[in-house]
Each structure stands twice: as C-alpha cells, then as structure tokens.
C-alpha cells in the first residue's frame, strides 16, 4: 500500500511573498490587537481579585497595575481595544457587501489606525478629568 504523503504546501496567508498593503496590514492588526488585549484583561482581573482579597495583596498588585509597566500595558491595550473596535465595525460593514472597493477598503483601514489613536487620547483625557 502506498502511503499518502502529505504535500508541503505554503500556509495561508502567504506572508513571505505578500507586498505590505493597507488592507493586509489592517487585517493582521485586528488579530494582533484582539489577542493582545488579553494581557491587559489578565492584569485587570488580577487587580480585581487583589482588591477582593486583602489590603496587603491589593497594595502589591496595585503597585504593579499603576506602575510605568501597568500604565504601558493598559495604554497599549486601550489602543488595541479601540483599533479592534473600529476594525470590527469595518467588518460588519464589509459583511453587508458595502465598502469593498479597494480605495474605500484602504481608506477604512486608515480610519481604524488614525481613529484608534484619536479615541485612545480622548479616553485618556476624559478619565483624567
């Protein structure tokens, strides 16, 4: 019996031969942000658990959550949340069959990138008022 040999096919997406473009970049960023946000969620839920545990434990976790490291993680996650938010809305629009022309799709990619930075700054300003 001849063994069925698996053929070494290139896996999709073919990143090695792909010219960087707005539509592929914005799609990959949706994945990276969607998965990256979990780091901030873990830190935040740990902080909630500490608040419910004891003063000593809260002081320990709160020091990490409000340190430069915590600020960095939460700010990057905030940027990630807003990017994923806008990219998700973009996909809901795509699902209706609209805005699929290349120029419109690329423009919406820029809306996600610039919009997420604007919304992040806006959120930081509002919560620090």
């Amino acid at each position: 019996m001849a063994e069925a040999k698996p053929v070494e096919r290139p896996l999709s997406p073919h990143l090695q031969i792909y010219r960087p473009q707005m539509t592929s970049f914005s799609s990959i960023m949706t994945r990276i942000t969607g998965n990256g946000i979990v780091v901030g969620v873990i830190l935040l839920v740990w902080w909630l658990l500490a608040a419910a545990t004891s003063p000593d434990y809260f002081n320990f976790v709160n020091a990490i959550a409000t340190s430069w490291f915590g600020d960095l993680v939460f700010t990057l996650c905030l940027l990630g949340v807003w990017y994923h938010y806008l990219a998700g809305i973009r996909h809901l629009i795509f699902d209706t069959g609209r805005c699929l022309e290349i120029e419109t799709a690329e423009m919406l990619g820029w809306v996600c990138v610039i919009g997420s930075v604007v919304l992040t700054l806006l959120t930081l300003i509002i919560i620090h008022l």
């Binding site: 935040l44 902080w47 909630l48 608040a51 419910a52 003063p55 809260f58 002081n59 709160n62 959550a65 409000t66 939460f74 905030l78 949340v81 959120t123 930081l124 509002i126 919560i127």
Partner: peptide, 17 residues
C-alpha cells in the same frame, strides 16, 4: 466600561470595592 475602569484604576482599595 472603559470609563468606569479608567476612573477607578489608581484609587484606593475601599473605593475600588
């Protein structure tokens, strides 16, 4: 939710609870 969490982060334990 971002507003609630953002304004509660950095407060003391009693306020968080």
């Amino acid at each position: 939710w971002l507003y609630i969490v953002g304004t509660t982060l950095g407060t003391d334990q009693q306020t968080v609870i």
